[in-house]
Design a protein around this nucleic acid. Structure first.
Length: 322
DNA sequence: CAGGTC
DNA sequence: ACTGG
């Protein structure tokens, strides 16, 4: 009998303790709710109060914070057979997996970067930061997959969060590998580069409501596939900020703002300061950056980034995320 | 008009 | 220009 038992979402460790693990992580270092709902990633969903379910590294996870601990559970794939689930997973495999999942999570949240020390430094340099920081502790920059980050942020231009989230959900359903079903809801991986290079990709994206961004997504996928490749894109992590930015801005649908988002959120460029309309207004109103144009010109964009880098230092992008 | 880009 | 809160 091969009928796969439908998997259920796991809200909390109490329900099924053996399937949960935890990492030490005080709230001053990470506030899950703030980070996962702030528009850095569009793939996390508050599945029940305090529990966040989403896809990371080709697996489905539920995360939860309790005091000084970050709890997590990872769901098996559909193809994994029942015998593994009940008789207790093969101990050896489970142990190896635990070290690996710990590592994935620590890397994704960049837990080796001490956030409280950074908050102190930014606050010492900037009274306005201090005020905001009080209400928003534990906001850190995720280290996302470059392909997911790039194509997600191509979708953000001249758009709003609720629609961006819905578009990316449809993108994954249509082009991404199906991972598993939780409470009858299917979860899909973010599409690989090659999934987006098909001849009909643009038309399919238009049908999914991507509008003019359909051409940007398919065009950038093609350009990367025929150029640096997924590996080359990932290798931008070891290149200087200016070089990564230059390469990204050559892609269709990628201008200064999207390039900075990709640099900051997936390519380890902590000095990248994405300047959206919101940041632009704050720079003028709260920080008195004198650039009284009617629109955010390339010149003004550069000036605002330089201003915040001068104020906050080499991790200005992290401070801006707060 | 929205976390811009061509 | 796409699309929708």
């Amino acid at each position: 009998s091969r009928s796969p038992t439908p998997m259920k979402l796991r809200d909390a460790p109490s329900a099924c303790p053996s399937l949960w693990r935890c990492l030490p992580c005080p709230p001053a270092e990470l506030r899950l709710d703030l980070v996962l709902s702030s528009g850095q990633s569009f793939r996390w969903w508050e599945s029940s109060p305090g529990a966040w379910t989403g896809v990371l590294g080709g697996r489905v996870w539920t995360l939860r914070q309790d005091g000084d601990r970050l709890w997590y559970t990872v769901y098996g794939e559909e193809d994994e057979h029942e015998e593994e689930q009940q008789g207790g997973c093969p101990a050896k495999a489970a142990k190896l997996d635990a070290a690996e999942t710990d590592r994935i999570l620590r890397d994704y949240f960049q837990l080796d970067v001490g956030l409280s020390a950074l908050y102190r430094a930014w606050g010492a340099a900037d009274p306005l930061f201090r005020k905001v920081a009080n209400d928003f502790p534990g906001v850190r920059v995720l280290r996302q997959d470059p392909v997911e980050c790039l194509f997600s942020f191509i979708c953000t231009s001249n758009n709003h969060i609720s629609r961006i989230t819905a578009m990316i959900e449809r993108l994954c359903q249509a082009f991404g590998r199906r991972l598993c079903c939780l409470d009858s809801r299917p979860f899909h991986a973010f599409p690989s580069l090659s999934a987006l290079t098909g001849a009909d990709a643009e038309a399919r994206l238009r049908a999914l409501g991507f509008g003019y961004r359909a051409k940007f997504v398919s065009g950038s996928a093609r350009a990367i596939a025929e150029g640096l490749g997924t590996e080359g894109l990932c290798q931008l992590r070891t290149e200087p900020y200016a070089e990564a930015r230059r390469v990204l801005c050559a892609l269709p649908g990628v201008g200064a703002k999207v390039a900075d988002c990709v640099c900051l959120l997936s390519l380890d460029k902590a000095e990248a300061v994405p300047v959206d309309t919101h940041v632009w207004h704050i720079a003028q109103q709260r920080y008195g950056v004198a650039l009284g144009g009617k629109s955010l010109t390339p010149r003004a964009y550069q000036e605002i980034g330089d201003f915040f880098r001068g104020l906050w230092g080499p991790r200005a992008g992290w401070a801006q995320a707060v």
